[in-house]
């Protein structure tokens, strides 16, 4: 299972930290689970009690970032540490795209995963952070296969869709997952001669393109993110091939967060059992109101951030 694009530090004679296997392996442990956005230690505990596999610590959920406008940045270290102290499950936090100093700060705080996220305002219009330079693993968003493979080339150890965060509308995440899956299926049918042209077209390194063509999947874990608001949304993303689900505003912007969080966890595990999804969907109270992505002006579309 060794990858072409992995860290040099693979020797097992002395303990080696921050290897590709350790970073990617961490995401493998999150599979089948739900990662929830939280803004306080209390919310983090609610998420943990509901069965979340990890929490994303941030100052404002995406729905509020949209409402407030302005520049969105890394969260206050005090706030992140408060959440780290409150729970025993892994804690993730977001850095701006290309803001490698925010990422250095997050690593020094001891977060378990860094999300180089389009939900925050990008700090660099050309370059994403060099993620190989960190011990802490990164998750990055992607709208298509080429974007996913460029992030993996930069060292991302986990990929998620880039569904429009804070809208409560799953349509964009569905588009991204279908796109990635279709492009992988197409690669599977290519012979060796065609893979070079495919790499050029995807604007991704040939070695990773070849690896994906052989594996029939990304060499890292693929989650859905953006717009999940209900148990059925979560199950939909899993049936479309997501190995787990990020839920942002959908839980703590709803009527009964604890109940909705537990219901989404159940539906994510039994994503192929409509009876269980039906039971999980009963009496959840109000879902977040949501935004129609069609009415979003181009400038407010987070998926356009990053390249």
């Amino acid at each position: 299972m060794s990858s072409t694009f992995s860290n040099p530090a693979q020797s097992t004679d002395t303990p080696a930290t921050g290897t590709a296997r350790v970073k990617r392996g961490m995401a493998e442990q999150l599979k089948g689970g739900v990662i929830m956005d939280v803004v306080t230690p209390e919310q983090a505990k609610i998420a943990e009690d509901a069965g979340a596999v990890a929490v994303m610590a941030l100052e404002r959920v995406p729905a509020d970032i949209r409402k407030d406008g302005g520049v969105a940045r890394m969260s206050d270290p005090d706030m992140i540490e408060g959440i780290i102290d409150a729970v025993s499950i892994p804690v993730m936090a977001k850095s701006r795209i290309g803001h490698f100093v925010e990422a250095q700060v997050l690593q020094s705080l001891g977060v378990d995963y860094i999300d180089e996220s389009e939900v925050l305002t990008p700090a660099d219009e050309v370059n994403h952070s060099d993620k190989w330079a960190f011990t802490t693993p990164f998750v990055c968003g992607a709208t298509n296969l080429g974007e996913a493979l460029r992030r993996i080339a930069e060292g991302a150890a986990m990929i998620r869709s880039k569904g429009e965060a804070g809208t409560g509308n799953v349509v964009e995440a569905v588009r991204h997952l279908r796109q990635i899956k279709n492009e992988i299926a197409r690669l599977r049918g290519y012979d060796n001669n065609e893979l070079y042209a495919a790499a050029k077209e995807l604007r991704a390194p040939y070695e990773i393109v070849k690896e994906v063509a052989e594996l029939g999947k990304l060499p890292v874990v693929l989650f859905s993110a953006g717009g999940v608001a209900t148990p059925a949304d979560a199950a939909l993303m899993r049936q479309l091939g997501a190995e787990g689900v990020f839920v942002g505003s959908g839980i703590f912007k709803s009527g009964d967060p604890a109940k909705r969080a537990a219901a989404i966890v159940k539906a994510t595990t039994f994503y192929d059992d409509p009876k269980i999804i039906a039971d999980a969907s009963r009496n959840l109270g109000e879902a977040m109101v949501g935004i129609n992505c069609d009415t979003l002006p181009e400038a407010e579309r987070y998926a356009n951030r990053g390249w």
């Binding site: 097992t12 004679d13 303990p15 080696a16 350790v22 392996g25 442990q29 892994p90 378990d112």
Partner: peptide, 25 residues
């Protein structure tokens, strides 16, 4: 996670070389 590591581990009952131990949290 930052302390997660790989190291060789000798496991009783497993013949041959040490096992590659991947320790994650």
């Amino acid at each position: 996670q930052n302390e997660s590591f790989e190291a060789a581990v000798d496991v009783k009952g497993v013949e041959g070389d040490a096992v590659e131990g991947v320790f994650i949290r």
